[in-house]
Simulated assay, not measured.
Amino acid sequence: MTHEKRFSKIPMSKRMRDLCKEEDYAFLNSQRDPDQSSEERHFSESQKTVEERDRRQQERELQRQEKQCEIEEQQKEKEEKWKSHVAEIAVKQEAIHARRHRLREFRDFQKKVLLQDLGPDAGSVDKTINHLLMRL
């Protein structure tokens, strides 16, 4: 085998060589290029770690962006709920104001009718009319 030829110059007993055969295969499989020096291997390993670190950083950035999008969506949803709530309150207030205006018109009409029924002596009867209207 090629690994035996490559490592035949290393002094080692046959028994030791048999014990280390699996390690030899693992070592040979881990090497990409047989002519690659230790510095080149170290550089390729450090490059792998840098790439892994960059990949993890990109994943974290992507997760951060997704979380930011979720937060923005929640804020938009809250704003929409708030706007609809305010619109409901405005509609209710407008209905209350319209009803109050109609009631005032009706009270004025009642007062006018009572004044016409009582006749020309309206000055002394004004307090009585207001009192009657308050009871109604």
Rank of each mutant, 00 (worst) to 15 (best):
Glu70Thr: 07
Gln57Trp: 12
Glu70Pro: 00
Ile89Pro: 00
Gln65Lys: 12
Ser38Met: 11
Arg100Glu: 14
Gln65Phe: 01
Arg60Gly: 00
Thr49Tyr: 13
Glu72Trp: 02
Arg55Gln: 04
Asp35Lys: 10
Lys81Ser: 02
Cys69Thr: 06
Glu45Trp: 09
Ser37Cys: 06
Glu39Leu: 07
Glu40Gln: 10
Ala98Glu: 06
Lys83Met: 15
Glu59Ser: 05
Trp82Asp: 07
Glu88Trp: 08
Gln68Thr: 03
Ala95Phe: 11
His85Thr: 11
Val50Phe: 04
Arg60Ala: 08
Gln63His: 10
Arg102Met: 09
Gln93Ala: 15
Phe109Gly: 04
Glu51Ser: 12
Glu73Gln: 14
Lys92Ile: 14
Phe106Cys: 12
Arg64Lys: 11
Arg60Thr: 03
Ala98Ile: 03
Asp35Ile: 09
Ile89Gly: 01
Arg100Lys: 13
Val91Leu: 08
His97Asn: 14
Arg99Phe: 13
Gln36Ala: 02
Gln63Asn: 07
Glu79Leu: 14
Gln93Met: 14
Leu103Arg: 09
Glu77Met: 04
Lys76Thr: 04
Leu103Trp: 11
Lys81Cys: 02
Arg99Ser: 13
Gln58Pro: 00
His97Lys: 11
Phe43Trp: 15
His42Trp: 11
Trp82Met: 15
Ala90Leu: 09
Ile96Arg: 05
Arg102Trp: 06
Gln75Asp: 09
Glu45Met: 12
Ser44Phe: 10
Leu103Pro: 00
Glu45Tyr: 09
His42Glu: 13
Glu59Asp: 06
Arg56Cys: 10
Glu51Asp: 07
Phe43His: 12
Glu77Phe: 07
Arg60Trp: 01
Arg64Val: 03
Glu79Ser: 06
Arg32Asp: 12
Glu72Tyr: 05
Ile96Lys: 05
Ala90Pro: 00
Asp54Arg: 06
Arg99Asn: 12
Glu52Tyr: 06
Asp35Gly: 14
Lys81Gly: 01
Gln93Arg: 13
Glu61Val: 01
Glu59Ala: 05
Asp108Phe: 09
Glu51Phe: 01
Arg64Cys: 10
Glu51Gln: 07
Lys83Cys: 03
